[in-house]
């Protein structure tokens, strides 16, 4: 966090007093908004997505990274296979019950700030395979999704539209309010368990209660 006492050269006192966005107790801390801008500007143009394909949508994701759509224009082309080096998870395809523990584990391994794009109908809400017995109806049952892109599969342009939307979202974030600088902001999702069926461990008490004959 920026120190309240250090002033960037060139910031005038008039600005400090007149900026209505600054709360009273941080009145002389105006450059924090400027820092937000720089911080977000850098962040939004150098997302490192995780090289992580699930199903059909992954093919369109690869096409997005290829010559015609060229993800590098966004500065997002550096796909990292390791979750520890990635800050964006593109859930590109059908999330199955067998796969969801791994997805959640990967998410937990990603450093914050981390973002999730649900690409395609399947990741958004189950998609055409929603009724299947091994299909999770939407990754948002487990992970906080930032952008949903419906379509089966979304065109590369649609995926890029999602990127633009995510950039917009990042732009609006402020250092003061983002969760990962707050105490207890590290929200680790418990990895679901595979028992007789997929078990969301956050609901285990409820399950035990309800199934008791």
């Amino acid at each position: 966090m920026a120190d309240a006492e250090t002033n960037l050269p060139g910031t005038s006192a008039v600005e400090i007093k007149n900026d209505p966005r600054v709360p009273a107790e941080l009145n002389n801390n105006v450059f924090i908004t400027t820092l937000d801008k720089i911080y977000n500007w850098g962040r939004k143009r150098s997302m490192w997505p995780m090289l992580f394909g699930l199903a059909c949508c992954a093919i369109e994701m690869i096409c997005t990274a290829a010559a015609r759509y060229d993800l590098a224009r966004f500065g997002w082309e550096l796909m990292r296979p390791s979750p520890r080096q990635a800050d964006l998870m593109i859930v590109s395809g059908t999330v199955t019950k067998k796969m969801v523990p791994q997805i959640v584990r990967l998410y937990n391994q990603m450093p914050q700030p981390r973002y999730v794009i649900a690409m395609g109908a399947c990741a958004t809400g189950g998609g055409p395979f929603k009724e299947g017995y091994n299909v999770v109806s939407g990754i948002d049952k487990f992970l906080p999704v930032d952008v949903y892109i419906p379509g089966c599969p979304p065109r590369p342009e649609a995926l890029m539209h999602g990127f633009v939307k995510l950039q917009e979202k990042i732009e609006k974030q402020s250092l003061r309010t983002v969760s990962w600088y707050q105490p207890g902001g590290d929200d680790v999702v418990p990895v679901p368990m595979l028992g007789p069926d997929m078990v969301d461990l956050r609901r285990s008490a409820e399950i035990a209660e309800k199934t008791r004959a």
Binding site: K130, S137, L201
Partner: peptide, 27 residues
């Protein structure tokens, strides 16, 4: 939504007397 008409509000079904905390199976 399909979630709204099923007992678990999710695409899951559990056998009777299933307690996740005591489950010992390994996938």
């Amino acid at each position: 939504l399909a979630e709204e008409r099923v007992p678990w509000a999710d695409n899951v079904n559990y056998p009777p007397n299933f307690n996740p905390d005591e489950y010992k199976g390994i996938p």
